[in-house]
Design a protein around this nucleic acid. Sequence first.
DNA 1: GATCAATATTTACGCGCGCAAAGTTTGCAT
DNA 2: ATGCAAACTTTGCGCGCGTAAATATTGATC
Lengths: 343, 343
Amino acid sequence: MSGVKIRNMEDFASVSGISRPTVSKYFNDPESVRKSTKVKIEAALEQYDYRPNIYAVNQNRRRTKNIGLVVPNLTDPFFAAIARTIEGLVVEAGFNPLLLSSHGGPDQEMANLESLRSIKPAGVLLAPLGRQSNREALAAFSAQIPTVLFDANLDGVGEAFFGSDNNQSVDLIVDYLCRSGEPPVLFEMENPINPNAFRRRTAYGKAMERLSYAPHFLRVGGDGWNFEEIGYREGLKVFAANRMPSKTVLCSNDRLAIGLLAAAFESGIKVGLGRDDDLRIAGHDDHPFARYTCPGLTTVSQDYGAISARSVDTILKLIETGESPASRQVALFEGRLVMRGSA
Amino acid sequence: MSGVKIRNMEDFASVSGISRPTVSKYFNDPESVRKSTKVKIEAALEQYDYRPNIYAVNQNRRRTKNIGLVVPNLTDPFFAAIARTIEGLVVEAGFNPLLLSSHGGPDQEMANLESLRSIKPAGVLLAPLGRQSNREALAAFSAQIPTVLFDANLDGVGEAFFGSDNNQSVDLIVDYLCRSGEPPVLFEMENPINPNAFRRRTAYGKAMERLSYAPHFLRVGGDGWNFEEIGYREGLKVFAANRMPSKTVLCSNDRLAIGLLAAAFESGIKVGLGRDDDLRIAGHDDHPFARYTCPGLTTVSQDYGAISARSVDTILKLIETGESPASRQVALFEGRLVMRGSA
DNA sequence: GATCAATATTTACGCGCGCAAAGTTTGCAT
DNA sequence: ATGCAAACTTTGCGCGCGTAAATATTGATC
């Protein structure tokens, strides 16, 4: 580094021997300037380590390079993982991701969007809470700022939605479970907060009927996002009362299954697909920890690589064209069966 | 809302009947203006929903209201939880937290700090990767921007460090394990990436010596942050070769323990503290998932409430006074024994 | 009603940069 | 050498707000 203090783009332009507007152009797109000037600027950049003031830049640019990323709950490793994937794609595209977690509450979700609004993002990727969400407010937001939903759909909110094909994935696992043993009951929450839970409920019903079995629902109480706790607590009750109506349980999601597995273990119920096991338990989502349950959790993976890629792709296109498409785009991706020891 | 479009503070000032400088003063501190003008401004605020342009504000303010929060890996629920706690405290103090994850890599860690630098944060709360971190670069950063470390210490980096007292916590669990059964071996990684692992290693050695037992180390290979996977894979090897040197295992952290528990289960080894169980396994940290292992994981909790509170408190003081203290502040908080079924 | 400190207003500048218009230079093709 | 588009430089405005100085107004106190 040289001794000269670079205070702004003016200073930097003069030490690099290029005019300020051209330097400005370079920072907006390094390829938009002649190669020789690019070399000069980058040489100066090595010596002086200047970077444009992000606040001045964003104040003057028509659109910022920020993309908001809002997930329901970062404490859930599933969302942490998908957020990370999306972050990577956003950075790769030359944008700046801003990660916010709604912590499972609609107030926080609105606060996140308000906070994003003041940052004037070019676009927002939103995994909404679902039923708890303030739909009207979300719709109002997405009318102002290009928004793409993922994971959970809300009709009329955002320009697009990408998620899992619950019909296909539930079909897949119900099929497998019926083929390989007693038909499953569905272990789920009475009042799920996630809209996917409702889709899985009906998907389960249809799948069972298709196979000529009567659907069985085991609905348990409990509020909030602490699914493991609910699966555990309610599982203990069910096992204590000997109320498990089948030797096979399909949980509405892996986190419930993780809790239920713990409850089964504690209740002395052997879970697995062996002859002398008492119960089979399957889940849905392929949670990062599903590999390490005892036994490993058989489940259906969500294709979150595809969901992430498509969501980012779509928001980038929306930003580029600057206009919303005629119709709301929706695509559902297929899950894969992940066989482990539990079912 | 009225039909008038409010484009800036000038517009807003005129509709509220107050001069712009006074409005500006209000937004910087609502209590700094006369009550009657505060009322007027807030009345206008209700009608017109104006908010200052954050970029213009930050361009002109001496210090921004941003506080960076960098954790090694958001995919780890432990860090997700502590990040959430800290976020809450930062917001409560009237600052704006910016959450970044280093994804386990030093390049990302530096990129995060570079990204923060351009945001000109008032301060940064950093849980460094540890041994992988580029210490010189971190030191250079913390010399420019007030920085407080937590979770993992790096000598000479930051104005303060707050974390767990590994000596105390390891003592606690070693004590318990020795009192209640066979003395534990320490299950850990050959080359841990976390500096806490080294402190726990020596703490274990000292604790065992104090109790007049010979320390036993079971060191396993493996790189990266995928601790569950390492515990699982290496655990399977150990069990297959019948190389477990004690009936009690203390894992260097809960994530290793989670993997080891899965390996034990798969190997047909019964974990627990009953007479007819084969092995006791304990962990360290009280990972959010530790409640739902089979059996539940006995461990030592970190007092991350205290760590969070103290870290936030300290960074706020640093920001307020605007000067660094004479000496680097360090405080270690005590852990609590969390008894579950595994040991 | 006079006094005085607290608070408002008016006026003005500057922050660092995007962006546009006009003129100039560059480099490549003919 | 000529031509011409692409890329550059120069000049200058404006973004929305913080902040400072000088001045005017307010409201509580005597």
